[in-house]
Amino acid sequence: MYKHVLKRLVSIIPLLIGVSIISFFVMHLAPGDPTALFVDPSVSPHELARIRSNWGLDHPVHVQYFFWLKNVLRGDLGTAYIINRPVTELIAERIPATLLLMATSLFFILLVSIPLGVLSAYKKGRGLDNIISVLSFLGMSIPSFWLALMLMLLFSVKLGFLPSSGMSDPLLADTSLPGKLADIVRHMVLPVLTMVIIGFAGLTRYIRSGTIEVLGQNYIKAARAKGLSERTVLFKHALRNSLLPVITILGMTIPDLFAGAFIIETIFAWPGMGRLGIGAVFSRNYPLIMGIVFISSLLIILGNLAADVLYSVADPRIRTEGKD
């Protein structure tokens, strides 16, 4: 068991190096560089050349990469251009907001999709199943930004219920802690709702097909033959087993959640890492981009690893084999 985890942990290193090499070179192939942001009638090209060399941009790409890697090994992700602050600090500042948004969404996605998936499987082929299926396909088909804008129009403009942007109301800066928390929660409702509507569908489908498979197995038939109630059969026996593969799928949903969070953060002005990242790509802030890619990849890999470990804890059959 520990050996397995250890082995997986070691395998993270080449993965991360691969990810960093690819992203580093892809970014530096891009035409244009960060100094291009300073265009203004009064900035001379000589000034730009000077700033370029201050930032070390006049070295060849592979040399720049090794500089970067050397610093990462020392726990230093570099200093972001223009903003002139350590990348680690910038990310640390933004990551809680992103994680909060992702974790809350994930929680509600699970809350919605587990009962829906199980019900759908149980009523397979009948009206309820069809309704749930169509709903989940709808969820999968809606462009996220479109949904976000529609929800904002409805809840913020038409009904005036919820704030449309940001994470907290600056006017409430002096209120008590519970007041502040409630304020954050209100700001979270719309982004979370959007992510849940987009995200619940896929998981519901997986749980449905997992449960259908389980329901066909002998031990379920046996349980039913024993005369256990349908409820017990469904939620005690079937659910527990059909949830196993869901753990793996959860690990794989993390990149999707990231991608979703990027766009959602931009629309709802959520002060998270995604927005920082998109801004960094557009302004060619190499150290910042590298830092964010690196950290998000690390999170994705760790998420998968955690799912893997959970899975082997939950299902003793695969404890020893390493899975690809």
Binding site: I22, V26, F258, D324
Partner: peptide
């Protein structure tokens, strides 16, 4: 090949798309 697959899967792909699209 499978390691390469792993690497590609560990990217937040939207980043890769954004970056390449910008190139």
């Amino acid at each position: 090949i499978m390691r390469f697959v792993d690497i590609m899967l560990s990217f937040p792909s939207i980043f890769l798309i954004l970056a390449v699209q910008a190139i």
